[in-house]
């Protein structure tokens, strides 16, 4: 984890232009009760070969951020503002057909439950060949060869047989490997992995994590790993971004965020992860429940659950640099509980 040691400036210099740059992204859902601002002014940057852990509870907007980048936000959702720059090209301005050409080619996505993502009525080869041919005019035989190579790459034994199989004939871990192979088929610049290991056995989890990490390093593919589980990403991500109620509340290198979490919410998350040191003790719990996106408190969205909250918190704090690469959206960054 050499990137952890670098300051933001040296990293920028080393890695050149970011693969993905999200600027003030707003993805809103118009509901009968009002507008739910699922993503509300998110900024993110991602460099070649970098793995970013996007952490948050359900409803924090982490998945919606992923879907926004993919261009898979359906009504009543809409991208209400901001820019999503992939290698400098603004995805929010693309037509549907232009966006389709980006999806699965430059940006690939891996979903949570591998038993749901593969079409049960189609053979693996059908689902892989079509993914190649959607973006390139090549023969079925060529596409099939690429599919076989991709299965090989993700460590699937006897890929020739697996190609002929239907999804139900494969185990959960195998299916997720197939999904990963599909994501890698067109050598994307960026992979968005939406809790790709949550539905898997723990032993398979770590294998898949290790393999994805290695593949990203080897191919230079950048990856956003969306998860609610801090423990999963802590071991693999270069940087972490913590989301709460549609906003990023803390971002920094994994080392910074894990060792010196600055936002009270991040500290709460850390406290609720079972670790060696907390063994035998009751796990800390963040008081209260996630607020409804329709009825967020004025100012800092977290203040009603925060022990540090005071008068200052009735105004929304900015995401401000706290320590080298670490930025925090809090009026009391780094302060411990009073």
């Amino acid at each position: 984890m050499s990137t952890d040691m670098m300051s933001k400036e040296t990293r920028d210099a080393d890695l050149g232009a970011p693969v993905l740059k999200i600027e003030k992204l707003c993805t809103w859902f118009d509901t009968r009760e009002g507008t739910a601002r699922a993503v509300d002014g998110v900024d993110l940057e991602l460099y070649e070969g970098e793995i970013l852990g996007l952490v948050g509870e359900s409803g924090s907007g982490k998945s919606v951020t992923g879907y926004s980048v993919m261009g898979l936000i359906d009504p009543p959702g809409r991208i209400a503002g901001g820019r999503i720059l992939l290698d400098g090209r603004d995805l929010t301005r693309l037509s549907e057909e232009e966006h389709r050409r980006v999806r699965g080619k430059d940006i690939a996505m891996i979903f949570q439950d591998p038993s749901m993502t593969l079409n049960p009525t189609l053979r693996i080869e059908t689902q892989m060949i079509e993914a190649v041919r959607a973006h390139e005019a090549c023969s079925t035989a060529q596409a099939r060869r690429r599919a076989k190579d991709a299965l090989d790459m993700v460590g699937i034994p006897s890929p020739e047989e697996r190609l002929r199989a239907y999804p139900f004939e494969l185990s959960g871990g195998m299916r997720q490997r197939v999904a990963i192979a599909i994501a890698l088929l067109n050598k994307p610049r960026l992979i968005i992995a939406d809790e790709p290991t949550t539905a898997l056995d723990v032993s398979i989890q770590s294998q898949i994590i290790y393999e994805l990490q290695t593949l990203c390093r080897e191919t230079g593919t950048a990856m956003i790993w969306v998860t609610h589980d801090l423990a999963v990403v802590a071991g693999m991500a270069d940087r972490l971004a913590v989301m709460y109620a549609g906003r990023i509340v803390e971002v920094g290198t994994t080392k910074e965020v894990i060792e010196q979490p600055g936002h009270p919410y991040t500290r709460g998350l850390m406290g609720s992860v079972p670790m060696h040191e907390t063994r035998g003790r009751r796990l800390a719990r963040i008081p209260g429940a996630t607020p409804s996106l329709l009825h967020l408190p004025q100012g800092c969205s977290f203040r009603e659950r925060c022990a540090l909250a005071d008068k200052a918190c009735t105004r929304m704090p900015e995401l401000a640099q706290h320590h080298q690469a670490q930025s925090i959206r809090c009026w009391h960054p780094g302060e411990t509980d009073r």
């Binding site: 690939a108 979903f111 749901m116 993502t117």
Partner: peptide, 26 residues
């Protein structure tokens, strides 16, 4: 509403193929 339809979209398949193959067969 199934995930595999969303996955098919994420693969960048054309709409005709998603509806005519993935949806229709199911």
């Amino acid at each position: 509403g199934q995930e595999y339809i969303k996955f098919a979209r994420a693969k960048g398949l054309r709409k005709n193929r998603i509806v005519g193959v993935h949806l229709l067969k199911n």
